[in-house]
Design a protein around this nucleic acid. Structure first.
Lengths: 222, 222
DNA sequence: ACAAATATTTAGGATAACCTAAATTTTGAT
DNA sequence: ATCAAAATTTAGGTTATCCTAAATATTTGT
């Protein structure tokens, strides 16, 4: 059962949509806009994925991954994230530069390659954006994380992930001086506009984070 | 100018055929058998590669890469061989296990990735089979190597490459105890059948190499 | 509950890359 | 030089993946 890169991208999109929104079903228009294809093309492909038993599909009523489809999705996510770790840790790419390359690498077919890459990288638990890497069994160790904007003054926490993966946002975060897995503490929150002042423990500096930015920042409370 | 993996494979095949045979032109049947496609399909594709100015093509008279096609070919070869080094040196694959994976990886599009991979691997000059890796400018540093079966008794040399890349042959070489870049010396050659007795300097052992095998072994004379 | 708006599917086509069978060109043996 | 064999190309067809336009189903506001 080798699937085409196109099929894999549909599977991944269905996974991402349902998983990130926490819903059962993804619908045609969502897939259409995420994949930059016309809805008609999506409809087409959904029928084929259904025949291959990768999705549950009832016309006009959205799709859901089958067990089989889910496991394909997880393996692609695993590969994508492992390659991102490789690109950042070994090849010194910045975290905002790796997405498109990993989009290609995730389709390389070789179980052995993934196993060895995982080992080479010392079995990382999360990718450069803090997203969890499914283990070889497909088990995802989700962190207990919350959005920074829901935290209170004096809370101490670790910056553990982002909810937005655009170049612009990622560069903004880098420019603020925030680095993944760093310990931070909320010094002050402006009532009026929700501006958050944060101390970065490693360098004793304080920075100011707008509430929109904060809503895309995930932290683990200590 | 991004080319499809299929187009790249045609370019690579044309390069390999002309280069390895030392001839100007490759013909349709050769390509057909190397690519496992029917001659009619090859003919089809050649017209398209011609329109894209990747090859010089006159119907019924074979093909030759243009400057542009040649440079595409070299970049693919470069990527293929760099990835092979990565797979062997970093992920501990054996030299007979890396070909199919590298066939996929060579189509990943990102100049920056190749540059960084090259650096990460310390700018290797040849791949795990001894084939030269074109540098970033596309310059190939060919070694002055000869087939082992053309050498004389008492010659000292370095095992520097193979002319056959099948799993079986590569494993045979490994089983003999030969490793790339090792110093060896010819102890004796049997007149009757060309059997060559070779001393491997590193371990003081002597081994016996059949003449067919020897004809696929490349060495640099010292 | 029903029409308008929205979402989705179907119908009919395009393109890349393959195929088989038939036609054409080149080659090579006499 | 000629003609059969071999090589190559053309013609016509298939599949995967996409498209536009038209048809149909669902949802939503009143």
């Amino acid at each position: 059962m080798p699937f085409s890169a196109t099929e894999e991208n549909y599977i991944k999109a269905i996974y991402a949509l349902t998983h990130s929104l926490g819903v059962e079903h993804a619908n045609t228009n969502q897939l259409s806009s995420r994949l930059n294809n016309k809805a008609a093309s999506v409809s087409d492909m959904l029928q084929r994925l259904f025949e291959k038993k990768l999705i549950d599909y009832k016309k006009y009523h959205g799709v859901k991954l089958t067990k089989k489809g889910f496991s394909v999705a997880i393996q692609i996510v695993r590969k994508h994230r492992l390659w991102e770790v490789f690109l950042v840790e070994k090849l010194n790419f910045k975290w905002d530069e790796v997405h498109e390359i990993a989009e290609q690498l995730e389709h390389i077919q070789s179980e052995e390659l993934v196993k060895r890459l995982d080992k080479f990288l010392h079995f990382p638990k999360h990718d450069p954006h803090g997203d969890p890497i499914p283990d070889i069994k497909g088990i995802v160790h989700e962190l207990k994380q919350v959005e920074l904007n829901t935290c209170k003054v004096k809370n101490k926490m670790i910056f553990s992930g982002v909810k937005l993966h655009t170049k612009e946002f990622l560069q903004h975060i880098s420019n603020l001086g925030l680095k993944l897995r760093e310990k931070i503490e909320i010094i002050h929150i402006t009532d009026f506009d929700g501006l958050i002042e944060v101390k970065i423990n490693s360098n004793k500096k304080t920075i100011h984070i707008g509430s929109k930015t904060a809503s895309h920042i995930l932290v683990e409370l200590l």
